[in-house]
Amino acid sequence: MNILVVEDEIMVARNLCRVIREILQDSIQNLYHVDTLDDAEKYLQSHGIDLLFLDLNLCGEDGFELLSDVVSSNFQTIIVSGNIDQALRSYEYGVLDFVPKPFTQARLSQALDKCRPSQVQTESGRGQAKYLGVRHLGKTLLVPVEEITHIKAAERYTEISLADGKSLLHEKKLKQLLCVLPDQFQQIHKSHIANLRFAQDIVSRPGSSYELCLRDGTILSVGRKFLPPLRNRLA
């Protein structure tokens, strides 16, 4: 796992890196620390990461603008901050976790569990995001998750379809998105996530294949292994 820590408090950063190393041990490929956002941007231009630890003092709107940028990227973000007032709003913006300072190893371990591949088992969304930051034409849009009907995997990206018929590309993969989206989002196929608020019916097709009809007329294939949990959710 490649991890970047953005923290300008040296002693805090040391503490954080040490604890992360203790938790992840060998599964860390690379753990890098920078002091400033500028340095972080430079690092990200030349390095891919899986996880960003960000100390964000989310005072004012600037902090959230930055946050919506960060969450539109193809890595997960964990906020480490002393200001827990902003925790809820951070979750709504789609961060994986919000770890209050001062942190313990147990709490950090819990946050890291959320993005370890082995731990990602269920098919429902496990996050609390109310918006999804999406980069579009050089800008970051904040899309309300309520407007997303379904999401399709598309090579390195995912394609997000909205209720008004538009679609947008997101840098995160399906599994990563499931970590931050709320539980009304259900994986129904290895390359489909549907917003169950828009689900209408499950239809069986010849050859014992199944499809999910959405209210806007979209038809999505349902994977065999995803059918029982989907039926449960729709019952």
């Binding site: 002693m11 805090v12 040391r14 503490n15 002393g82 007032d85 300072k101 001062p102 942190f103």
Partner: peptide, 17 residues
């Protein structure tokens, strides 16, 4: 929080080191 929490986090690192 910004002052006190960062101070306490740094402190916990000093306690260990």
């Amino acid at each position: 929080p910004h002052f006190i929490m960062n101070t306490l986090t740094a402190l916990s690192e000093w306690i260990l080191t």
